[in-house]
Design a protein around this nucleic acid. Structure first.
Lengths: 354, 354
DNA sequence: TTCTAATGAGAAAGCGTTTTCTAAGTTGGT
DNA sequence: ACCAACTTAGAAAACGCTTTCTCATTAGAA
């Protein structure tokens, strides 16, 4: 082997961590760390011949820059975090999907943090996730307004979903659940229903609060319509277990908190031999993919939820790039999706079983 | 303000990045970086009084160690990656959930990488994710065996799901889809069906391959039963669009690739006025939560999928901690879940529309 | 030919931690 | 009272990279 101006080493020096580092490439190519870095980052102030040699060495050693070292030097991780209250919920799954997908297209990854509906964990989780990432998407946090306001400044760049804050530079993407539930209620009333029941969601859920507000507004505008409130939750079982309460209520139009609850309810009603929509009309919310495949197919308010995840990334990207943001936040209007689970009201029911 | 032995600075020095670092705490407490680090990490070789001062300074400045710097120094990120073919698929969502949950309990976070079923992307994605994390869970990769074998060594610590490798120290968690599909087919035959059809999944899917193998074994053991193969996919629409093919096949027992496909198919059959299970029996696979709420409720093979995600973390943890692993991988047996979508066969059908 | 400007690459500093190394101060035994 | 042994905390190196700074070399102009 000829000894030239540059001493090239053929033995691979394994660094402390056992992985191949920039130093190994530098030695192999007979150049300095700096030059290797320049070549790897496409800096053109390097002689093409040397660059080629570096690339060859890198390829031969299968060198891949260590992202942690890179992150430390550059002050960015190319990663964003998302905090969700419950990864089992299709809505949050869809947001995650939309976010992950959009971020991936710009070379960003997503770190997930599931708070399992424990609102007291959210703040810690959010802080931890934020420190590891370049930004954070806080998804429908269950924490109180006060706590939210307190932690928001330390979380920037931050995008909020289904929650708002007074802090500046924090885009909020909110679905207008209030309007959606009014549309659904209006639809039922148009069908002749005069006694409705709302199967509520988790008490701490902000989106449940919006729905309740919407229903108050609806009641104000429709004094002749009764709107009963039933306790509930956000999953199948909630709906399934609510059958008795629903039947006892005597309502002929049921506004379920979301599609899952509606499906659970329909399943329970089916077991009791109650016909939907013949005896009782049921509506959901969200328009999850399953909604169009239930029997009967589910009348619901469609939320462009994957698009919302995507939009969350756009806002985040603007924040990270410190771009001027023309639309710092948006409001999504649900679209009434009338299917087969809602129909004309029968003769008015009184509080008695089927 | 009294000047003591230690000069304490009350002004907060904002480092280059604008965040509060260990240096700020050190200055405020009048000690060195090293001491602050020691205190933050619970090292007891620090004088209690000084430790208290450091803690006070840290609390006052709301100091939180920068995880990137920490990761670089410690050579670990407390993060694991997961690569999934499709985040929209409930199966992968469930695995992610189980994994994330179990990992969180041990203080680890999960970074997600969705390959969107593009098998050529998987290897790059896996490598990138792995470099950012302490380990990787590779979920049902669509890549070829050859490619898998090639990249596996560079991915260690690695846990494989629904795929196996010859490499050592790579636990594999696989669901016995072959056995499951045989159980389902056996169930249909017991009900008197003699003409079955399998609505296949994505061609590159390894789990689809296992199902096909299972069906071959089944055919060998049941020469009098016809088992037709129909092309398909993995989602609702696939099932919905397969109605014609299913009806044309004349089969009375349909083994759908998974629950989603089964639901799509049932929905399509319902639209055509075909009774399930009166005219045709349909089975799914996975037992996703929705399966017990369809009408009719879906006969399927239950896979303890969340548990699988959890188990994936256990294996990963053992690998990371370099523990002896007694069970380097496991095989999960699906459990037959007989519900209402399967019933006795009617008079044998011939190839004609219902 | 000589001076200036431009080019290219190495040395070194910096990112924010942890940890080893080192030295100062303290205790205790004789 | 003196020296060894032990505490304790600061200085500095290390982690793996990017980037600024600096200097040597070469090209170009007068």
């Amino acid at each position: 082997m000829a000894r030239g101006t540059y001493e090239r080493q053929t033995m691979v020096r394994r660094s402390a961590t056992g992985r191949i580092g920039i130093a190994d490439v530098a030695v192999k190519a007979g150049v300095s760390h700096a030059t290797v870095s320049r070549v790897m980052n496409g800096n053109f102030t390097v002689d093409p011949e040397i660059a080629a040699r570096v690339r060859a060495a890198a390829a031969e050693l299968k060198y891949q820059p260590n992202p942690v070292g890179r992150s430390l030097a550059l002050g960015k991780t190319d990663t964003i975090g998302i905090v969700v209250p419950d990864l089992a919920n299709p809505t949050f799954q869809a947001i995650l999907r939309g976010l992950s997908r959009a971020a991936a297209q710009d070379g960003y990854r997503v770190l997930i943090a599931d708070s399992f509906e424990v609102s007291s964990e959210e703040a810690i989780l959010a802080g931890e996730a934020r420190r590891r990432c370049d930004g954070l998407v806080l998804c429908a946090p269950r924490m109180s307004d006060a706590e939210l306001e307190e932690i928001v400044p330390s979380l920037h760049p931050l995008v909020l979903i289904n929650r708002t804050t007074t802090a500046a530079d924090v885009p909020s993407l909110v679905v207008d659940y209030g309007q959606g539930v009014q549309d659904l209620a209006g639809h039922l009333v148009d069908l002749g229903h005069t006694r409705l029941a709302f199967l509520a969601g988790p008490p701490r859920s902000a989106s449940n609060g919006l729905r309740l507000q919407g229903l108050e507004a609806f009641k104000a505008g429709h004094p002749h319509v009764e709107v009963l409130m039933l306790e509930g939750g956000s999953d199948f079982d909630t709906g399934h277990e609510a059958v008795d309460a629903v039947l006892d209520s005597g309502a002929t139009g049921i506004l379920a908190f979301n599609d899952l609850v509606a499906m659970g309810l329909m399943s329970g009603l089916h077991e009791r031999g109650v016909d939907v929509p013949g005896d009782i009309s049921v509506t959901g919310f969200d328009d999850i993919p399953f909604a169009r495949y239930t029997t009967p197919t589910l009348t619901t308010a469609a939320v462009p939820i994957t698009e919302l995840g995507q939009q969350a990334w756009r806002q985040m990207r603007a924040l990270i790039r410190k771009e001027e943001n023309d639309a710092p936040g948006s409001r999504y209007q649900p679209r009434l999706e009338i299917r087969a689970s809602s129909g004309p009201a029968k003769a008015p029911r009184t509080a008695a079983h089927g």
